[in-house]
């Protein structure tokens, strides 16, 4: 294995493209090192992206924020402005692992590791976040939900990597929230999860919503039927019940050591319901 720490994006892309064998990007390393230790991957080349210009910064852009791909969860959590605009995304990212893992783990790494249970991803999808991709060709922007294509698999092409994730501006009276279910209070991988982002009109009626579920399908699910169930409502009990039912219906989970199909399907609905209520309150609605 070779370790490289390039100083420019172009150099990083060149290194990645030139290597014939297996390559790995190293951001926080909290997935990569575990996989190395277990012998799950044996890359020829590891490219550390933490020295690339701008990758460790958070900048305001067009009313939203551009989050560098090497920004750790801890750094993100300390940014009061991002927290104020996208509390659900920040809380989702801050749920990843322990304080120690937060010191290193990145949203981009969480996304590119492509685990169906990745915590930040449902929140990013609900937020309509966009990933900026660098590589041998010109940089391009892609909605985050297009990145993971299956467990452990991404749509990134050879030599490509994410340089930042953009969280857009949002209208007044908007709120988002993320909840996951884990057996303990910390240090578990989500058994099921739900993110909701919504916007209200002045009267408290939901005008737009995005609902995304994690750990209940091979990739994060954006559930349009669930969003439709609450748009035009004030999140009354009947709307919430429809939302939960739509979420459960959208699940196609597996049975494994972490949970059963039955459990995941039911709990995904419960979490969506609870997350919607939090998002609604954050948006200024009177629940």
């Amino acid at each position: 294995m070779r370790y490289e720490k390039p100083q420019t994006v172009a150099e990083a892309a060149r290194l990645l493209t030139a290597e014939k064998g297996l390559t790995r990007i190293l951001a926080g390393g909290t997935d990569v090192l575990v996989q190395l230790k277990a012998g799950m991957v044996e890359p020829e080349l590891v490219v550390d992206i933490k020295a690339l210009p701008g990758l460790r910064s958070i900048v305001s852009e067009a009313g939203g924020f551009r989050i560098g791909a090497a920004v750790s969860g801890a750094q993100l959590g300390e940014d009061a402005e991002v927290r104020a605009l996208w509390p659900g995304v920040v809380e989702a990212t801050n749920l990843i692992g322990s304080t120690q893992v937060q010191g290193r783990a990145t949203m981009a790494g969480n996304l590119c590791n492509a685990s169906p249970a990745a915590d930040s991803v449902p929140a990013l999808v609900a937020a309509g976040a966009v990933a900026r991709i660098a590589g041998p060709g010109a940089a391009r922007d892609v909605p985050v939900e297009a990145i993971p294509v299956g467990p452990g698999k991404t749509a990134l092409k050879r030599g490509e990597f994410i340089t930042s994730i953009f969280l857009p501006a949002r209208p007044a009276r908007s709120g988002d929230a993320y909840l996951r279910f884990i057996p303990r209070t910390e240090m578990d991988i989500a058994v099921a999860s739900a993110a909701v982002s919504l916007t209200l009109d002045e009267g408290g009626t939901i005008t737009a919503a995005r609902v995304a579920l994690g750990a209940v399908a091979p990739t994060v699910r954006l559930v349009e039927a669930a969003a439709a169930a609450i748009v035009g409502t004030k999140l009354e009990d009947a709307a919430v019940a429809k939302l939960a039912a739509a979420c459960s219906a959208a699940c196609s989970p597996i049975d494994d050591k972490r949970g059963t199909i039955e459990f995941r399907t039911e709990v995904a609905g419960v979490l969506a319901k609870r997350a919607a209520r939090i998002a609604y309150t954050r948006a200024g609605g009177q629940a």
């Binding site: 370790y3 190293l26 390393g29 090192l33 575990v34 750790s72 801890a74 120690q100 010191g103 290193r104």
Partner: peptide
């Protein structure tokens, strides 16, 4: 920053 040293490459 607090980290797990087992999750950091020595390099």
């Amino acid at each position: 920053r607090l980290v797990c040293s087992c999750l950091v490459l020595a390099v």
